[in-house]
Design a protein around this nucleic acid. Structure first.
Lengths: 350, 350
DNA sequence: CTGAAAGCGCTTACAG
DNA sequence: CTGAAAGCGCTTACAG
């Protein structure tokens, strides 16, 4: 055993001894226990002793005593399944840190069924986490195991089937409508949707937003959708079909940035310049794609960071509420801002 | 207070009562304490009682008693600073999970100075983590604060200045040499390096690898490097300069995938097809770039996942060693595999 | 203003 | 083969 063990951590008792007071008093001054007055001079002595000894309270012991571990658990289906979803972690961590909470994470495999696996929840419960956030990206709805009702929880990316767990979802529909409206405001009328054939909520939200905006502009008849795989190859194929058709669109709203990448290629092959000959927008703002494309892609951002923040903020509020039952509420819809870059312009006169 | 509190968790005492034995015995059978024989029938009774009650040991209490929290802490400078570095977390988490360890993460701001901030380490030490992994991506060397010597630790992406903390680094130099050699084997001689002007270890490693490979093929004289910013715009400018020069290169090795993206554009503008007219390779394998490009980019992968795994594996070994001092050793160099896709071919005959 | 004591939920010598 | 008891490092009524 090296120096590591010799260290023999200093405990509250050591501080008490050094300050010549009881551990009770040390605890009170260090925690600034409410409704407890301690003589100023004593306070100083205790603080000094703690400092000199480099005393750090053992959070495990505190947790055992107070039934609050000061830790929250984040279980994420295939952590950062989509590369930049890691931003959910960043947002959650930053917020937790600000609240003096530690963030533990655990990975859960992608769930085919919408059931949250109890295993991951148990791992956290055993460690007495104060709350749990469950992040998924592939389901509309999710059903929580019974044990999960024993602790404050919040959901990211899916709603609770029972409606009793607060949840946050990206407002893809509005985001999509916003960017399409922007296209319309630039003067486009023949705006097509390069859609995805994935059967996930995002697919539905984005087409809906597209249709909303077209309808709002009385252009529902102009709406054209061609679906394909949600990657560059799919975007290419869909864009080719659209661009080579009669009355080809002057603007393409792509399901995601990768499809937009394929659409860029289709345009280039046809000698179409962006945005002069055709405007193209994407969705996701998936770094480093949009800024690596030329011209830089105007797209709609998925608010991962914000959802992570919101989740622990909400959890903190729940904790403060002392475990009061949460009344069922509808999911929070986090705005998806459109990020304007260089791929949109007015339609070419014809 | 809702049903949450009513739950009043069942403890080891409840199990003991139900099984009609002492808590000592319960502890022994549940933990399968070595060198302790318990009558089979008793074992069964205890197990049954635990199961019926849905008993789950309180890890906080166990930790307090055994001085092992079963948790390791990962502090990452700007978590997933680069989008796919989130894979470090995935690798670490998977490995920790397999070892029955929980993984807590904490974010640290980007450090300008190579000093690991004690604050982040403290947060973990207070929670009695069994070990710490510190992940950075911008420094060659890092110096750990004194407190960090009090716990098993490992470094990702940087070496410890004192050499006493095990560390793992991507072997960028070899990876670069490998991909350049591949280009050479395809018959290329005029291979240029589209380099980065960033003053970070990666820059140095990748040029060195390039030079190694050129030298090994007796082509040191053919080496040409032009540096620029490490993004698409920089790659474009550098590639333009190279492609428009006398005896322009037949292959471009780009510092990273984003620069390769810019190089693609430069080639396209010049009517140069990839890989027929010019071969291009990148570095990082930064999803979703390489597979979204056309043709799909051949590149060298940064082994984030593997480094994450290695880190907790090594930590686990350290823990097993019971805190024995680690003899200083040189950093582990994790291979950077070249990922072959479609952007390389033989040089065009001239 | 301060302290003795109980107890959080476990594990672990030690004794029988 | 099994159990009583001490103790991990704290907090918190309660008493003085």
């Amino acid at each position: 055993m090296g120096s590591r063990v010799a260290r023999s951590k200093t405990g509250i008792r050591d501080v008490a001894k050094r300050a010549g007071v009881s551990v009770t008093t040390v605890s009170h001054v260090l925690n600034e226990t409410p409704h407890t007055r301690v003589k100023d001079e004593t306070v100083d002595r205790v603080r000094a002793a703690a400092k000199e000894l480099g005393y750090r309270p053992n959070r495990l012991a505190q947790g055992l005593r107070t039934h609050a571990s000061g830790m929250i658990g984040l279980v994420a289906e295939e952590i950062a399944a989509t590369p930049h979803a890691g931003r959910i972690l960043l947002g959650a961590q930053k917020r937790a840190d600000a609240d003096g909470l530690a963030l533990a994470i655990i990975n859960s495999d992608l769930q085919v069924e919408p059931f949250i696996p109890p295993r991951s929840v148990h791992a956290f419960l055993d460690r007495q986490v104060d709350g749990i956030v469950y992040a998924t990206v592939y389901h509309d709805e999710v059903v929580a195991p019974p044990i999960m009702r024993g602790v404050p929880a919040v959901l990211i990316g899916a709603r609770d089937r029972d409606g009793s767990i607060p949840s946050v979802l990206p407002d893809e529909r509005t985001g999509a409508a916003d960017v399409v409206r922007m296209l319309i405001e630039h003067g486009h009328r023949r705006i097509a949707f390069v859609g995805s054939s994935d059967d996930i909520p995002a697919t539905r939200g984005r087409v809906s937003g597209y249709r909303d905006a077209m309808a709002a502009a009385e252009m529902a008849d102009e709406a054209r959708v061609v679906d394909d795989t949600s990657d560059a190859a799919g975007g290419y194929r869909a864009a080719v079909e659209l661009l080579d058709s009669q009355d080809s669109p002057t603007a393409l709203f792509c399901y995601d940035d990768r499809m937009a990448m394929g659409a860029y290629r289709a345009a280039a092959e046809r000698g179409l310049r962006i945005p002069d000959d055709v405007s193209i927008v994407g969705f996701d703002d998936q770094a480093p794609l949009p800024t690596s494309m030329y011209p830089a892609l105007t797209t709609v951002a998925l608010p991962h960071y914000e959802m992570g923040e919101w989740a622990v903020e909400t959890l903190t509020a729940l904790l403060g509420a002392g475990g009061a039952e949460v009344e069922p509420s509808s999911p929070m819809l986090m705005p998806c801002p459109v990020i304007v870059r260089d791929s949109v312009g007015p339609p070419r006169d014809e």
